[in-house]
Simulated scan of single mutants.
Amino acid sequence: MPELPEVETTRQGIAPHCEGQTITDVVVRNGRLRWPVPEDLPERLRGQIIRSVDRRAKYLFINLDGGTVIVHLGMSGSLRVIIDNAPPQSHDHIDLTLASGVTLRFNDPRRFGCWLWTETAASHPLIANLGPEPLSPEFNGPLLFRLSRGKQTPVKSFIMDNHVVVGVGNIYANEALFKAGIHPKRKAGRISLDRYHRLAEAIRETLSAAILMGGTTLRDFVNSDGKPGYFAQSLLVYGRGGEACKECAATLKEIRMNNRSTVYCPKCQR
């Protein structure tokens, strides 16, 4: 599943081609996504100017004068910038054609993504109750410490809760906890303020590095230019269960938590 770095990489890739451009046509080939694409979406969008392309958590905002299109890539979706009039392929469900001749094309084999219309994105039910962005000043160790008091849930589940902080998906939770030296099953409420300072910084460092490298290569993910990310080359624990820890050479352990792969070092993380 595309996580925050992949979504931010997509935003950075498509924004220069879209911002300031007028939408001349909208083609919805299959509107049966996670939620049905509004039937009047093409009518709403034609003739409007894309003012900006923003991101909140794993949602992309295509901001127009009259409102915002909220886009989610789901499990397998991607947004591609098409400049050569390439014909649509299987699972190419939505096209936005711009006055420049560029087409923004949405591909989603599993159809778990979404394209929704709203006049006020910040108050939309999908957005209104989200936690802070992990790269924003509002996210820090004291916040994690305060929200974790009394929590019996494992710390890995805690930092993956979008009400606590957005965008810390499975891959990056594994990596950040390793960098902070925290065992993924440790109870969130039993972690000190000092350790939460380290964890918040590890989350920021991990996500920032992944964005710079274009995201993590996943089976279904490609950037807007069709090139896969390559942060996978830098992964310290995720996907490396049974291999040697790069810090202490101990064998990395792999377990399942909430049906997700969790890899950690039994010596470096406590």
Rank of each mutant, 00 (worst) to 15 (best):
Y59K: 01
K227M: 13
R46W: 01
V168I: 15
I94W: 06
I255E: 12
P137H: 10
G113D: 05
R51C: 02
V26T: 09
R240F: 05
H93N: 12
F145Q: 00
A173L: 09
R32Q: 12
H183E: 11
A180T: 04
E138A: 14
L130M: 09
A244W: 02
S157W: 04
R149A: 13
L126F: 11
H91G: 00
S261I: 15
I14K: 00
D84M: 13
P5D: 06
S261D: 14
L218T: 11
V102T: 15
I62C: 08
G181W: 05
R260E: 05
F231R: 01
T251G: 05
N174C: 15
T251M: 10
R219L: 08
R186A: 14
P38A: 11
E133C: 04
K187Q: 14
S100P: 07
P125F: 06
R186K: 14
L41M: 15
I191T: 02
A200H: 09
D84H: 09
L104D: 03
G74R: 10
E43C: 04
L218W: 07
E205L: 12
C248I: 05
A250V: 06
N258T: 13
F106P: 01
E243W: 01
R44D: 01
V168S: 03
A244M: 10
N85L: 11
R105N: 00
D40W: 06
H91E: 00
I14M: 04
K179T: 11
Q152H: 12
T251E: 14
L98G: 06
D65N: 09
F106K: 02
C18Y: 02
R146T: 12
T120F: 11
N30T: 00
A15N: 01
V69Y: 02
G77E: 01
E19Q: 13
T10R: 01
E8S: 03
L212I: 11
P134S: 06
G141F: 10
F178N: 05
I23V: 15
V27Q: 09
A249P: 02
A202P: 10
P266T: 08
C248R: 04
E43M: 09
F139S: 03
W35M: 03
S208D: 14
V168L: 07
R270S: 09
S234C: 14
E39Y: 04
M213A: 15
D84P: 08
M1V: 05
P42K: 10
P184Q: 13
I50A: 04
P42I: 13
P109F: 02
G67C: 13
W35T: 03
R190Q: 14
P87W: 01
D40I: 09
R56C: 12
V166S: 01
Y172P: 01
L104W: 09
Q12I: 13
L64Q: 02
T68Q: 08
G150M: 09
N63L: 05
L116T: 08
